[in-house]
């Protein structure tokens, strides 16, 4: 077997995950999205990161 089927299976799994996510999450709203860049936006940084503890 070559690497091609492995990649196809992996990309298919990611696509399925995205489809499940879009079906079960709140609808996307591009008009409520943050600006392109956090720097200069005036908004507080609020994304989740592996270095963060809850409430940190």
């Amino acid at each position: 077997m070559t690497r091609l089927p492995v990649v196809i299976a992996l990309l298919a799994a990611v696509a399925a995950l995205l489809a499940l996510d879009l079906a079960t999450s709140h609808p996307l709203d591009p008009f409520a999205a943050p600006p392109l860049m956090a720097l200069g936006s005036g908004q507080a940084s609020g994304g989740a990161h592996c270095a963060s503890l809850p409430g940190q």
């Binding site: 499940l20 860049m37 720097l39 994304g47």
Partner: peptide, 20 residues
């Protein structure tokens, strides 16, 4: 500059399972 936080990897992977 874009995200407002540095590059990370593992939070996202755990989130995928949590969502599932």
């Amino acid at each position: 500059v874009v995200a407002g936080q540095p590059w990370g990897v593992v939070y996202g992977l755990g989130l995928w399972v949590a969502k599932g």
